[in-house]
């Protein structure tokens, strides 16, 4: 079961207008910047994107948003010192925002992949983010019901993949990626290294290959903060 694809453009070619796309990463750590740029080149529009943030500068996720391809962002923190693309579009009413607390976002994604349609969490009880949601009491404490989150595609960056799609990550670049891999119908991964089956110790596999559909090698990925410092914008 060899899941290798030759190029990033081939890997994202079938992403249709209107798709829901989960994109791994916490800020620039773990952001699959080459896959995002390939999605910009593909021109797919009207996308719903799930990511913790909304990108920085005018590269990667911020460039995808700036290019008018995203209809709606589902995220926990759409602000950062270098994010200007999203705030401008949001204030102009040109992009929708679903604000989700970070832990609820993670658990909704995990639940989506695990076949759990909803769950109860104490997070947001008594706050504006709980408005209109079902509240139920368990052992005398209130909890808010939250639905699962699933996607048509996940775009993921990993450190090492084998041909079968078993993955390992690098440090805090792991963040949302393993749970997004399980919550998407089609998971597309860019890997710094691709190795033969057996070269990753089964005890060390973080994402089992079952959850991965396509892998493409990007040996030297661009570094978002470097591009921003150099004033680069994409395309």
């Amino acid at each position: 079961m060899d899941k290798r694809i030759q190029s990033v453009s081939e890997a994202v070619a079938d992403i249709q207008n209107g798709s829901t796309v989960m994109i791994g990463g916490f800020g620039e750590a773990g952001s699959p910047i080459e896959l995002i740029h390939a999605l910009i080149d593909s021109g797919a529009r009207n996308l719903t994107v799930v990511n913790n943030n909304t990108g920085n500068g005018e590269v990667g996720l911020a460039a995808l948003i700036g290019n008018g391809q995203v209809r709606k962002m589902i995220c926990s923190y759409p602000r950062s010192s270098h994010s200007k693309v999203f705030p401008e579009l949001y204030r102009a009413g040109k992009i929708e925002l679903e604000l989700v607390p970070q832990g609820t976002l993670a658990e909704r994604i995990r639940a989506g992949g695990a076949g759990i349609p909803a769950f109860y969490t104490p997070t947001t009880v008594g706050t504006p983010l709980a408005e209109g949601k079902e509240v139920r009491e368990f052992n005398g404490r209130k909890y808010v019901m939250e639905p699962w989150l699933q996607a048509d595609y996940a775009l993921i960056k990993c450190e090492t993949a084998d041909h079968a799609g078993n993955l390992t990550y690098n440090k805090t670049a792991r963040n949302f990626s393993p749970i997004m891999c399980i919550a998407a119908t089609t998971t597309i991964v860019q890997a710094r290294k691709i190795v033969a089956p057996g070269d990753i110790d089964p005890e060390c596999v973080v994402t089992p290959g079952l959850f991965v559909d396509r892998i493409v090698q990007v040996a030297e990925p661009l570094q978002e903060s470097k591009l921003i410092a150099e004033g680069v914008s994409y395309p």
Binding site: S76, Y77, P78, R79, F86, P87, Y90, R91, L97, L99, V100, P101, Q102, G103, T104, T121, P122, T123, T124, V125, T127, L129
Partner: peptide
């Protein structure tokens, strides 16, 4: 009205 709402992990932290 004009603020970009951003919550991060604060609401999970205070509950848990």
């Amino acid at each position: 009205v004009d603020a970009i709402p951003a919550v991060g992990g604060a609401m999970d932290l205070v509950q848990g």
